[in-house]
Nucleic acid binder design. Structure first.
Lengths: 199, 199, 199, 199
DNA sequence: AATGAATGAGCCTTCATTCAT
DNA sequence: AATGAATGAAGGCTCATTCAT
């Protein structure tokens, strides 16, 4: 729990806090952290300016909570896929599932991702959050893959690298900025790399 | 040319404009775009606040120029390496050179990279600059690799993907956030992937 | 009665009102009027924010009530000393008693005194309260001193002046800001002045 | 010099800084520190809000400068009177001069005095300023009186006490709150006390 | 061309007061 | 009577941009 300004006991309060976080989530996504002001967050959340500071210490505190939500939304589904991979393991199929889910997540969160990543440069707490949860997910995935029979040599490094590659690819696909690139071709390349990496 | 507020005729003017861009480059790197103010840029550049607006339309215009410089500084050296790869082609050696150079560049520019990437989300022109120059470099590298005898099938996609992977890795290495990762192991993995990709 | 928002009929209500006044008293003393907020007053009084406005018209109304208490606490003990001065009158002894009591009172209330005095400048009602109760005490003391055999010529002016002098001295002693001053020497001087004044 | 935000080199700048201080002086006098806002100060000074922060670090910094001016305006004239007392010394005349001057000064500054004194309770720097300059003036006056032939035994304590008494009296006179007091009678009493004190 | 003082809109945050429960 | 969450006006301060010199 990033904010300890008020721990809402009542359901209504929790709802309201979540509304504010959601408003922050949306606005930070749309116009960035510095493009968003607290009045706008309050307005979008349907509350008054003042009460925002009843639930959060300051604007940055909202960001921290948004970050938590973001990380949950992005990494949990991926962990879920790996955790529930059908046996026996079909590496290519698993790779594809992960890629597709990452793309889906990126479609919803890419802008926010950039914003948060940029702030991590300036804000040590944001950075720490990022790192900590990357750690957690890497560890979790590695364990699961070993369970599924993957060679455990350098598994941490392999998983981490794989994650990065998939993220890069998802980013490319979602933004679709380069007209000359055939993303489906690239997808196959990524798939091959992953399969080769873990086989 | 991003700014067309004034096309400096005199050498001294050009120098002054460059000083301002350099000051912006440094400050945006150190404390981000929103952590930098124009007075500070002027001070660091050794010019007056007012004259900044003689050379640039606004603060964002400085950013655009910084972006140009950034892209030159980051991508040109990479192109150079590929352009001057010794024949006959040793893929692994070339891969290593590119990786090492990318790391070196990232060490100098990682923060700025994040800042710019985040702004691309909000600012279409920044985004366009990024895309356009990525395009150019991908094309250039692809051509050169084909010249060097690499199979030209899907070369564009391969080059682009390779670039992304190397960048991801460089980012990891430079920030060195995950104590449990052996970056040298990961480097070998990346190398292998690249060699496999283009062989 | 400063506040006429609600005249509490029930004992518990009176208690609650007094708790709020006491909380205000303490907080205004500790951090001044502007350093205190109503939420804090309510918290310290152990009541809800809302109910404060059941007993008081506004924050200033609390101040007025605090002022009443303050004046009681500061001036009544002094009146008591003079009223109960042993006969026959020993002027020096009486002066000393008054001085010592004033110091004692100042130790507890000096900050609040400053705060109230400052507000009297801006707030006519606060000012009036101050004046009115100073009047009462001056009159009371004068009468008593005359009863005790002091020459009644200019007794009002003498008493008022004496009060001021003693207060000044008490302030000096309590704050003890000037390391080079021997406060015991000054005390003797004050004593002599008072004796001389009334003899 | 309390503020080192900008040390105005140009005459125009010094003028402007002084205008702001003067505006603060007036407003703090009229409605107190907390009743004054920076926009109002700027407006009264005939400048923009922003430039106030070009000359002062914050609102409190203005207060510190106002305090400096205040102390100069209040204590210097008194020092001047004592420094230039005609010889041979006529204690009663000198006392009267000091009393009259103190009244005059109080007429102009009493409200600000209260405001500043109250803030001294909360703000250590304000308090220190007050103490430091009281020290200076006490020392200066004591020396001068000794030069004029006054017995130097306990002179520091006597001067300090005398200052306090005169200030109390001036305060009473200026506010003229007690209709039943004959201030001219009280003045004579004060005079007698002072003469008695130093003779 | 150049300076840097000046502008003022806009931001984050606080808090006296209200109101639904 | 009582609660405490909610309101929103107002305040201190910043900074991109302008302008007199």
């Amino acid at each position: 729990m990033a904010s300890n300004v008020r721990v809402p006991q009542q359901e209504r309060s929790i709802e309201k806090k979540n509304k504010i976080i959601q408003a922050g989530y949306e606005l930070f996504s749309e116009v960035g952290y510095y493009g968003t002001n607290t009045v706008e967050i309050a307005k979008r959340a349907g509350v008054s300016t003042g009460i925002v500071y009843g639930y959060f210490a300051d604007k940055r505190d909202i960001l921290i909570c948004v970050l938590e939500i973001y990380i949950d939304r992005v990494y949990k589904p991926l962990a879920h896929i790996v955790d529930n991979a059908p046996k026996p393991l079909d590496l290519r199929k698993l790779a594809l599932s992960v890629i597709d889910k990452t793309i889906e997540l990126h479609e919803q969160n890419a802008k926010l991702h950039n914003t948060l990543h940029s702030l991590a440069t300036t804000d040590e707490a944001v950075n720490a959050q990022f790192i900590n949860l990357e750690n957690k997910i890497t560890e979790q995935m590695s364990k699961q893959l070993v369970k599924l029979g993957i060679d455990k040599e350098n598994i941490i490094e392999k998983v981490h690298l794989a994650m990065n590659i998939v993220q890069s690819y998802a980013h490319e696909t979602v933004f679709d900025s380069h007209s000359y690139i055939h993303y489906c071709v690239m997808k196959d390349l990524v798939c091959n790399i992953l399969v080769e990496l873990f086989k």
